[in-house]
Amino acid sequence: MMIRAKGLSTREINSAISAAENKIDIVDCFGERFIGCGSSGRRINITGTPGNALGAYLDGSEIIVKGNAQDAVGDTMNDGMITIYGNAGDALGYAMRGGRIFVRDDSGYRTGIHMKEYGDKKPVIVVGGRCGSFLGEYLAGGLIIVLGIGCNTFPAGFFTGTGMHGGSMFIRSAVPPAGLPEQVIVKQANQSEMSLIKDILKEFCSYFDISADTIYDRPFYMLTSNSKNPYKQLYTEN
């Protein structure tokens, strides 16, 4: 089914999505928000620039964007897959609990903040380019990979891993990260650690037609947290 988004309200788009059998092509997208919100079991191809909160609460559907996405992609996402052939805006995958988000190019500030994992749910964000500041803030679970393709500095802004208390980040970089908070452990990923992300990288590369060799030419820095309880010592009972 094909939906021409221009001129349609979000409600109209989303009810068309839930009415559709499975595969939906949305074209002429210009900032229509909440596309695929809470949706499951659908495959949604979007051409254009979908609006904020694309795939919020996504519950198993697959969303493919041919173009850039705006802010809050995959907000509180539970399951499914979002692939962006371009950039993503700020707050990508906020409080995401499951599923995967692949961004071919860059993502904005606050990528993957407060991602968390539970049971077999383990969210994954892979960003091909670089990220803004506050990458993985409050990270409580899941996996964030930043490849920094085409980037010769460290491919994330300031304050990476602030308040991080779970999960892990793999950041491909020619230079080691600096200024990380105390509770974040950083090390260059060894072979066995790299094997943890091997399959995801392979998949990411195949999606975007990236030669796998090019990404192994630089070290990956692995960031983990040394505590599940980062603020344990902060308080005094009164």
Binding site: R97, K121, G141, G163, G166, K228, N229
Partner: peptide, 9 residues
């Protein structure tokens, strides 16, 4: 929906 023993922030 978070692991046991992990802070809920």
């Amino acid at each position: 929906m978070i692991p046991e023993g992990s802070d809920a922030i």
